[in-house]
Amino acid sequence: MAKHENVSLSVIRRLPRYYRFLGDLLKNGIHRISSRELSLKMGVTASQIRQDLNCFGGFGQQGYGYNVEALHKEIGSILGIDKGLDIILLGAGNLGRAIASHMSFDSRGFNLIGIFDVSEDIIGQTIRGIRVSHADTLPEFCRQRRPKVAMLCIPKNSAQEIADNLVELGIRGFWNFSHYDLALDYDNIVVENVHLGDSLMTLCYRVNEVLEQNPEGPQEKE
C-alpha cells in the first residue's frame, strides 16, 4: 500500500463507506458507475467523491466513470484490508462475545487470533472457534503471536492501565468500547474510541427534531 501524505482523517473515515457501497454494487452486477450516479446512491455530492478519490490519485476516466471492481480493490488496498492485521479481544462478556461472534474481521483487514477475560465463568468457553484464555496469559501470548491491535470490551476503570500494558507488549492500535476515551502518551499508537451510547443519543436528538417539525409523519412524494 502506497503511503499518502497529508490526507485528512475525515477523508479516511469516508473510505470504508465507499468500499461498502462499491461492494454492494458488485454484488448487484454493476461494473461501471459515474461519480454522479454514485453520489445519488450515497447521498454525498459528486464533487466530494471526486475530491476524496483525488487525494489518492483519482481513479475515474472522462466519459467512462469508475470501474467499480478496480475502485473497490484500490480502496481496499488503501485501507490495508489485504494486510490481515492480527487482533485480540479483551473482555468476552455480552458485548465482546457479540462483536467477536458476528463481526466479519477478515473482510475488514483483521484476523482475530485470541480472546481473553478474567472471569472464571467465561474462561475456557469457545467463541468463534477460539478458546477464551485468562488475561494473565497475555504477556506470553503477545510474545509468541505478536498481535498489533486489541479490541477492548472491558470496564472503564481498568482501560488505561490495561492499554498501557498492551502497548508495552507490542500493541499499536486499539478498538476501544470501554467508555473511556483512551489518550495514550505514546507516539504512533492509534485509537478508535467507540461510544454506542453517543450514537444512540444522537439518534434521539435527530428523531425528536423530526417529530417536532413534522408530527404527522412523512408525506408521499409526488
Score class of each variant (00 low, 15 high):
S34D: 05
D82W: 09
K156Y: 01
K148D: 08
I154Q: 01
T126E: 15
K148H: 14
D117L: 06
F105E: 04
F105H: 03
V118G: 01
R145E: 13
L71H: 10
I81Y: 15
Q125T: 14
N54E: 11
D106E: 15
P139V: 07
C142W: 00
N28K: 15
F56M: 10
I127S: 06
V118K: 07
I123N: 07
A135D: 06
D164P: 00
S34Q: 08
S34I: 06
G96Y: 01
D24S: 12
S107R: 15
Q144G: 00
G43H: 12
Q48N: 11
I162F: 00
K83Q: 15
G96P: 03
G109A: 09
H134N: 12
F59W: 14
C153H: 03
A100S: 14
S107V: 12
S47H: 11
I75D: 01
I115S: 03
G29E: 10
L40W: 08
Y66H: 03
I81S: 08
D24A: 11
F105I: 05
A46S: 14
C142R: 01
D52E: 07
G114A: 10
I30C: 07
A92K: 04
F105N: 02
L38S: 04
G58T: 08
S34H: 05
L40C: 07
V132Q: 06
S133F: 05
I122H: 05
S77Q: 10
S119C: 12
N28F: 07
R108T: 09
G63P: 10
G65C: 11
F105L: 05
P155V: 01
A150G: 10
D24H: 11
G76A: 09
I127E: 00
N54Q: 13
H102P: 03
P147C: 13
K41D: 05
G84C: 06
Q62N: 07
G109S: 10
A150K: 06
A46D: 13
G91P: 03
M151K: 00
S77G: 04
H102V: 09
A163H: 00
G84R: 13
V68M: 10
D82E: 15
K83F: 07
I115H: 06
K83S: 14
L85H: 12
